Computed example of a mutant assay.
Amino acid sequence: MNKRIANNLERRAQFALFVTSYLPLFILIIFKQIYTNLSFLNYGDFDLVSINLFIEKFGLSIILSFVSIYGYYGAMKTLNNIHKSSENGFPVKITDIKNKNSESIGYIATYIIPFAFQNFDNWLELISVCFIIYIIYRVYINSSLLLINPVLNLKYSIFEFEFEENKKLKNGILISKNNELQEDDLVKLYSIGNKMYYSKKIKK
């Protein structure tokens, strides 16, 4: 029996993909916090009160700026590595396929928009936001949400699909640069997790 082991992404790669899925929100929070607290950007005494005020008013923006840069760079590097490794994937014929790009719209509405209307200028709100995002991250990396990413959808498409391997029908989620995959298309699949794949279309 031919058993295929999933090439599960490293934690750093998963974290980078998670960050890119929230990149629009992080950018919005950064600009909103800085714009709202511009009046606090003046030099004062360098003491605990000043440091505490600076962290309250701009701490989240600084953290998210570093996280966003790391996440974007990491995600691009991860996808580039996956694209190269996909040459070692296995060929299959698609038997059924459904476009799931609309899932990203729901992702934005459910997870991103509610945060956009929060204030981020005190310790309680800062800790609350970080805690909620951490909980979502834990759910994210252990589910197919790993591929539900509005930023990646600018270049890639997401599909729920079915294929035949060793005379057995199997299903999963795939991400591909080709947004016009159809039934009976031949593709090369590269496993990136449990029932998650990166695909390249095989030219006939």
Rank of each mutant, 00 (worst) to 15 (best):
F15Y: 13
L41S: 03
I175M: 14
G172A: 07
K3F: 13
S191L: 05
K98M: 09
F115S: 01
I136A: 02
Y107K: 05
L124T: 13
Q118N: 08
Q14L: 15
F117P: 03
F66H: 01
S50G: 07
F163P: 02
K168D: 12
L181N: 01
D184Y: 10
F115P: 02
D184W: 01
T95Y: 05
F15K: 12
L154M: 12
Y137Q: 03
T95H: 05
A16M: 12
K98E: 15
L189W: 06
R12T: 13
M76H: 05
D121G: 12
L79K: 05
D184E: 13
L17S: 06
T36W: 02
I27L: 15
K177E: 14
P91A: 11
S157T: 11
F159L: 03
S176I: 07
Y73D: 07
D121M: 07
I29S: 07
T78Y: 05
S102P: 00
L60N: 06
L189G: 03
A75T: 09
K177M: 08
K77R: 14
N80T: 13
I158E: 09
A16L: 11
L79A: 07
L146N: 10
Y111R: 06
S157C: 10
F161V: 02
F90G: 04
G59C: 10
G106S: 13
I51H: 05
I158R: 13
N81V: 07
D47G: 12
S191Q: 11
P91W: 04
Y70L: 14
W123P: 00
S128C: 03
Q118R: 06
L53C: 04
I175H: 02
F46P: 00
W123R: 09
G172Y: 09
K84I: 13
N7S: 09
E160C: 00
K188P: 00
V67A: 15
P114A: 02
Y35M: 12
V187G: 03
N88P: 00
D121N: 15
S104F: 02
Q14R: 15
D184F: 12
I30Q: 12
I133E: 12
I127R: 08
T78D: 05
L25S: 01
I132M: 08
S61T: 06
I192L: 06
L25F: 01
E183H: 03
Q118M: 14
G59S: 10
L186M: 08
N149P: 07
I112S: 01
E180R: 07
L124P: 00
K57L: 09
Y140C: 02
D96S: 06
E164F: 00
K201I: 15
N153C: 06
L64Q: 04
S191F: 08
N194W: 06
